[in-house]
Amino acid sequence: MQTVDLAVQYRQKNGDKTMAVSGLSLSVAPGEVVGFLGPNGAGKSSTIKCLMGFVEPHAGSASIFGLKAGSISAKRRVGYLPEVALYYPFLTPYETLDLYGKVQGLSGKSLRTEIDNLLEIVGLGAAKKKQNRTLSKGMLQRVGIAQSLLGSPELLMLDEVTSGLDPVGRKELRQLLKERQKAGCTLFFSSHELAEVEMLCDRILLIHKGKLVEERDLGSLKEELRKFSLEFVGHTSMVGLTSELEDFGGNRIRANFTTKALLLEAVDRAKTGGAKIVDIVSEEGSLEDYFIDKIQEAA
């Protein structure tokens, strides 16, 4: 999946034009799990709509599996969950999936079996004959998730996937998505929930005001944000390892390090220097703070 210099423009009711996405270039490799992040109005949904062919790009291009985004052949390989969808209120989850399945080109017993399986997977097996209008928001989101999985798509494009789900539902969803990933499915999803992103993604893309402001491998970013510290009592020099020292008095010092290697070397020095080690801390940094900083920088 790829966008090159993508621009999406909307015409407002008063005739003014708003640029929702401008010059956005990104790519997602097959099998990757990519989180698409950004504050409200950043252009996440517009980008996804463009990738689904709901909106024509004003400039640039978007493609999925090398096919023009929004083309029938591209859509055949994609499952999509919209940010907010009500689904037909007077149809049941089963009928809803049956409708989407038939539109997808599926039919017969294989479709019926797949619908039953999916409804069981998303936890709607018991509610499959209730009309959608009687379902809770979370249950409707499960209908949405089930419909996005119909036809075993190679790419899942999920807009605010955890919206409306309770903690149990989120956990089940994570499990489900991980299974899909293991089966070779590419996942591209937008979210405000950084915890979800952290737990699921290989890579994140941060977008602000329609522009890509950060693209990081989540593993290395987390490593980068991790904080290490050593608290000791005694006289041991940390020169060359860190200058970030906190003196608590009575020779009690806390030294902060940027990498694990520096921390380990500091521990060696402290032991050799006869200092008494009081505490060794390895804590994860805040992704939230990092993103806020990045967005403020971009602004």
Binding site: K75, R76, V78, P82, L86, P89, Y100
Partner: peptide, 11 residues
Amino acid sequence: NRTLYPLLARP
């Protein structure tokens, strides 16, 4: 009602 999106996401 945005029921259009899941439909148009189909081929």
